[in-house]
């Protein structure tokens, strides 16, 4: 079971969290013309790296904050967690 540091609550076990997927995916701005390609890239395409992965987690059984986690997809080691507004 992963041990994840919520930037707001501290170290907690994985069962308090929900996974939220790739954090590098950026939603195109509202009311902006986007090509099919750009839109589909946002909705469907994922790099799915082997190694460091920047991802979202949601502290659903805690403070209900979304935050960023940098984790290794081979070893599951977590390097860093950060609030959404912070850069990793």
């Amino acid at each position: 079971m992963l041990h994840i540091k919520c930037p707001y609550c501290g170290m907690r076990s994985q069962n308090e969290f929900a996974y939220g997927g790739d954090a590098t995916v950026k939603r195109p701005e509202l009311n902006k013309e986007v090509s099919d390609e750009e839109w589909n890239k946002f909705v469907y395409l994922r790099k799915s790296p082997r190694g460091k992965h920047l991802e979202l987690w949601h502290h659903i059984s805690g403070c209900r904050q979304w935050f960023k986690v940098q984790r290794d997809t081979i070893t599951h080691e977590i390097f860093k967690t950060a609030e959404i507004s912070e850069d990793i």
Binding site: L56, I60, W66, I84
Partner: peptide, 17 residues
């Protein structure tokens, strides 16, 4: 119910802070 709440929180916290 649970999905919608997470959905709203996702947009409020990440996409449209």
């Amino acid at each position: 119910a649970a999905n919608v709440l997470s959905h709203l929180e996702y947009y409020l916290q990440i996409v449209w802070p």
